[in-house]
């Protein structure tokens, strides 16, 4: 299959890429890993008039700790994250479960986040960890909370002349932990159900902050604030995690489809929430 015709430029700087995007507007797309965009173009679901290839821009491949957060540049591939010693918690837990090994060698975390596929795993992880998206435009850069960035089904809140240049994932100074649970029918399939959990513990061992979010069980990646409210201020326990699991399950809005019934997916949400929270708590205590 051949994509429709398009103009192509390989940008050598972020400024050049943004200028090209500003000129082309909505019909121009950035090309990073291309693991979602190119399949869509081959099927003619996407027919951009111009591609701005950002793969040759230097300095976008950093994955490092900066000022209390993990900085993930626009060209950091999923495989880089899986192999990095810098990542922990839910991010480290999810990385090996993104797509398949071949896709992970090309696909980028920033690209996946910007794509806003409701069945994508990363936005769930970022909702649970409270990450920010760094968007750069012609007049400078701004940070957007992930909850404001993910607008809708395949829709982010970027302006037409903005590019995602990095993600900032908070790294708590105290005790914390996180995990991602994903059920997939086979390697490379979208999640049937995914749940990310992030916990921070206070000095007295109670939960000072909690993040729970879900993949593939709502029209968008859904933060389970109902489950988070159950957790904060309480001591971690199996009973508490079961209660949080029930709250997440009620907040989920899954559909019957080829991957399973809505009723069963709700049960998976409850079980995965408990397991992810238990793993997060164990990590935080160790």
């Amino acid at each position: 299959m051949l994509p429709a015709q398009f103009d192509y430029i390989a940008a050598s700087s972020v400024e050049e890429a943004i200028a090209a995007k500003a000129e082309g507007g909505d019909e121009t797309r950035f090309l990073a890993g291309g693991q979602s965009l190119l399949p869509m173009m081959k099927l003619r679901f996407a027919t951009p008039s111009k591609l701005v290839d950002v793969n040759r821009i230097a300095g976008l491949d950093a994955i490092e700790h900066r000022n209390g957060h993990l900085h993930v540049g626009a060209l950091v591939r999923h495989a880089d994250i899986a192999a990095s010693g810098e990542v922990s918690g839910a991010v480290a837990s999810a990385a090996p479960w993104i797509a398949d090994p071949l896709v992970r060698n090309l696909g980028t975390m920033c690209g996946s986040v910007a794509h806003c596929d409701p069945e994508g795993d990363w936005n769930t992880v970022l909702l649970a960890t409270g990450a920010e998206v760094v968007a750069q435009g012609p007049s400078g850069s701004r940070t957007i909370a992930i909850g404001d960035f993910v607008q809708d089904f395949f829709t982010n809140s970027l302006n037409d002349d903005e590019m995602v240049v990095a993600l900032h994932i908070p790294v708590p100074s105290g005790r914390s932990g996180g995990a991602y649970q994903k059920l997939e029918r086979k390697v490379g399939d979208y999640a049937t159900v995914g749940v990310a959990a992030h916990l921070e513990l206070a000095a007295d061992g109670t939960i000072s902050a909690a993040g729970v979010a879900m993949t593939s069980v709502a029209p968008i990646n859904r933060k389970a604030t109902e489950a988070e409210a159950v957790l904060v201020g309480n001591a971690p326990s199996a009973e508490l995690f079961a209660e949080a699991g029930a709250a997440a399950s009620s907040a989920a809005d899954p559909r019957d489809d080829v991957r399973g019934s809505a009723r069963w997916k709700r049960q998976v949400v409850a079980a995965f929430t408990q397991r992810a929270l238990a793993a997060a708590a164990e990590q935080a205590r160790s």
Binding site: M1, L31, P39, K42, D53, D100, L102, N105, L106
Partner: peptide, 29 residues
């Protein structure tokens, strides 16, 4: 499959295995 699913088009680009049906030739310049 030609849809990024099966992996039979795998080649090594700078040593890393990737699906050559999901990469443009110009990207390999």
């Amino acid at each position: 499959c030609d849809t990024t699913s099966c992996g039979v088009c795998t080649v090594l680009v700078d040593g890393a295995p990737v699906k050559s049906c999901t990469m443009l030739a110009v990207q390999a310049d």
